[in-house]
């Protein structure tokens, strides 16, 4: 009897949760569906759901008309590049703060975090002028630099919280056994730090891929990543929903998949360890 009630409640929960979940996911689902329609079907009233002529035409058109893959590649270079450079700078810093904490380590960490609190628009003017004078406007190099600096505090913080969970006794034991610093890092620390580093990389690629203040303000046609390229669809030219959907689907698909893999680390990364 009690079990039947439990099953009933579980079924009710399931129904409500799936309903709400699908409702929240619906705009994404609708975008994906629309990307396979013709432009006429995309705006049909009443809307067509699944019974339309599935076509890949929009994907072909988007690539042909606008050289889509160049912008896709810009996104890849900018997000992966800035994350890897950030990682190279951050690993030593996070390692040192986690394992050789000094009196001021906490202050340094907090100060690094405070640079994240600076609203980007507060430094828009000088950065724009510096970029213009150095010829960095609309270049991937310029954007990689900016995004590295933006995400560096997050990378350091995430790595720091991961490194701190590695018991320092293990490192001491290795040192006792006569391991050099290099051996200690490569053979002891690295294997334990890899999972934390992987999720740091994943989250930062996602953040850099979706960054839409600097990418919109510092690029034009040449170095524009997908955020800026998609924004160019905001001026409507006749029927274009299906093409917009195709361009959008390709822009969000890789990050959606990566995001689902990193959902557990997301909480730690975005709250700087305040919620785990």
């Amino acid at each position: 009897m009690a079990r039947a009630v439990k099953t009933q409640r579980k079924a009710l929960n399931t129904a409500i949760a799936w309903g709400v979940g699908l409702l929240i996911f619906f705009p994404i689902l609708w975008t994906i569906l629309t990307s396979f329609k013709t432009e006429a079907e995309a705006i049909a009233d009443p809307p067509v759901w699944f019974n339309f002529h599935w076509t890949l035409e929009n994907y072909v058109t988007v690539q042909e008309r606008s050289n889509y893959f160049r912008h896709f590649w810009n996104s890849v270079v900018i997000s992966v590049g800035s994350t890897l450079i950030g990682l190279i700078i951050a690993v030593p810093a996070a390692w040192a703060m986690a394992f050789v904490p000094g009196k001021r380590t906490k202050d340094v960490l907090m100060w690094m975090l405070s640079t994240k609190m600076l609203p980007p628009v507060g430094v828009l003017v000088p950065l724009y002028l510096i970029f213009r004078n150095l010829g960095l406007l609309d270049t991937r190099t310029g954007l990689v630099f900016v995004l590295t600096m933006i995400n560096l505090p997050i990378i350091i913080w995430m790595l720091y919280t991961y490194f701190r969970e590695i018991p320092s006794e293990i490192l001491e034991a290795a040192r006792m056994d006569g391991a050099s610093l290099k051996e200690e890092v490569i053979h002891v620390l690295m294997p334990m730090a890899v999972p934390g580093m992987a999720s740091t990389v994943l989250l930062n690629i996602i953040l850099a891929w979706n960054e839409a203040f600097w990418t919109l303000n510092l690029t034009a046609a040449k170095a524009a990543p997908l955020t800026a390229f998609i924004a160019s669809y905001s001026s409507p030219e006749g029927l274009f929903y299906a093409k917009l959907s195709a361009a959008s689907t390709m822009a969000i698909a890789p990050i959606l998949i990566m995001g689902w893999f990193s959902q557990k680390q997301l909480v730690r990364g975005l709250t700087f360890g305040a919620v785990k």
Binding site: N210, A212, I252, W260, L266
Partner: peptide, 11 residues
Amino acid sequence: VIAPFFVMPTV
């Protein structure tokens, strides 16, 4: 439920 967070703002 989590998916919208990964959609870039312009999209």
